[in-house]
Design a binder for these strands. Sequence first.
DNA 1: ATTCATAATGAATAACTATTCATTATCATG
DNA 2: CATGATAATGAATAGTTATTCATTATGAAT
Lengths: 146, 146
Amino acid sequence: MNKALRQRAILDLLRQGPIANQDELQRALRKRGFKVGQATLSRDIRDLQLSKTASGYAFPQGESATAALPPVSRLVREFVLDVRPAGNLLVIKTIVGSAQPVAAALDEEEWPETVGTVAGDDTILIVCPDKQGARKLGRRMEEMLK
Amino acid sequence: MNKALRQRAILDLLRQGPIANQDELQRALRKRGFKVGQATLSRDIRDLQLSKTASGYAFPQGESATAALPPVSRLVREFVLDVRPAGNLLVIKTIVGSAQPVAAALDEEEWPETVGTVAGDDTILIVCPDKQGARKLGRRMEEMLK
DNA sequence: ATTCATAATGAATAACTATTCATTATCATG
DNA sequence: CATGATAATGAATAGTTATTCATTATGAAT
């Protein structure tokens, strides 16, 4: 039950390459650890306002799919447990299994302080350019935790 | 068996308003005199590169549907039997039943010499600004007849 | 006109997608 | 922690679309 992450993953998959149908989408998502039924995918596709073309699912005009998506702050609040700067690194703890997709979402934000990210099962490491960057990013994420 | 006219009509219908599915498209086309099966519509939609969105069929990016369409010259060659200037009018004879859609296609060209068009069952009247315009347009269409 | 090749089409059906209905999770509040 | 409201989900199924397999039309070339 993590619609938010799943829908982000769907958009991500779409950027990677063409998805011909919901069956294919289902299999691709399963590889990423999302196990859902076809009905749910049909709903996701409606939510994201995707359209089906001869060559697979496509984004709507003007990248408005991103708009239909919950903001990262909501993801952080929902899945992140702890944030700790450590030198020029930021160590983020998430509920188990969510580190990977949350990291992907953070990546997409393209914050200037993120040089790179690595994600395990329940831990994300964000590499920042320097100690100051890590602290700044840390504060921003603490803020999101409400 | 007049794919060319039918596909033009489909695009025209799409401009008029939303078409939710092929059943609806089939009924709308029938009103215009095109009687075809669902299978054919599925093929037309592929040909025209339309995509299906939550709010019905939509044009592809960049109006490229027009590109997938045969040029007017082909329509004229196929459906027009005779062209005769008469003062500032151009009288066009078509095979029976095609005047209406052919006139629609000619209209869309927005030639400067066409002030307006009226179409019956097998006859199109194109009103031109003057005698010269009618003759010029007449020559252009004769040309299309090969 | 006959023949041949190609294109267009429909009926039947396979494939795919959306919805309904019931169930389960989540969350706020007493 | 119960309870009720709301959201998310899946199984079954209804609805929709794509494809297959014949068949028919069209046009070119004898």
